[in-house]
Amino acid sequence: MMKSFYSLILMGLLGLSSCKVDPVIIPVLPVNDLREIVPQGWPAAKYTFSVNAISAEAFVLGRSLFYETLLSKDNTISCASCHMNKAAFSNPDHNLSHGINGILGKRNAPGIFNLTWHPYFMHDGGINHIEVQPLGPISNRIEMAENINNVISKLQGTDKYKTLFKNAFGTEEVTTQRMFRAMAQFMGLIYSYNSKYDKVIRNEEGMVFTEAESRGYALFQANCNACHKEPLFTDFQFRNNGMRVDPQVNDSGRAHITNQAIDLYKFKTPSLRNLAHTYPYMHDGSLATLQACLDHYTSGVVNITNLDPYLQSGGLKLSAEDKKDLIAFLLTLTDNTIASDSRFADPNIK
């Protein structure tokens, strides 16, 4: 009796002092249920919505902005032009993203999910916060090429946004902070934690790896997990995995931001979740298939400046059979709930 009393108090205190989200597993959320999630066993998120209280109205505004072409100079391109819902919000059609006037960017658009864990954004980590992320593409000459002042006045001039801003923030006023916080709610609440892998790890009923997937998982842990760390499948470090440098583009990677020689040709380790959707692969979209990625690790690793020590002795050793098993495992990281979840869908398509 006494003991259970103590533990009750203890739990009460824990509950109160944490004031944060408890680790929860909520397999697919019902429509309109918006909440911060930290799946069991995951690290704490970097962005916690503590100054950006989640509301359905702000989320709806953020979604609307994400799918809004008024954000671009000639009103033709939205974030979703390059970050497609059906493809875990990546751009499967192009190896390099096409922006305004079809101009080719120099990098491949990554998927958008589990962003609240990212300590920085972009392949070079140049953007340091989810709330200032949209400024990058909006003002990028090649992507949307628009000035934020114009975006604000365009939005302010529509009844639709007057209503949406009023619903979300109490007045019709359009400010960058309101825009970007709403967009942070939309993007930040796109979680990916319902792949087959997750269900197996959670011991959900009837969920087991096939033999090939099991072998693949073991190979993954031995060869890849050092960088593509579970459960997010990235360690968020900047590393050089031996991709050939295209002399035309000469993308210096992280060094573009830090101007330090030790960062030359290093890129943020990408998550391997949703690989089935996020092709083509690597920062420059130069590898079309998972087979090509694995072939890269076994026979394509170029010994260039700052090649990761882990890959320096001629890359990884994997047999053809190993690669098959690895691919089988990698495909268990596909989470189709992102595409099927109507909360994330284009609100303009009824």
Binding site: I127, I130, V132, G136
Partner: peptide, 24 residues
Amino acid sequence: NVSGTQPGDLESSYASDMFWTWSS
């Protein structure tokens, strides 16, 4: 510099080109 969007004169940075968008 690392805490996302801010109000007031810091917010004006975006419109006044006083914020680097490619390297926050």
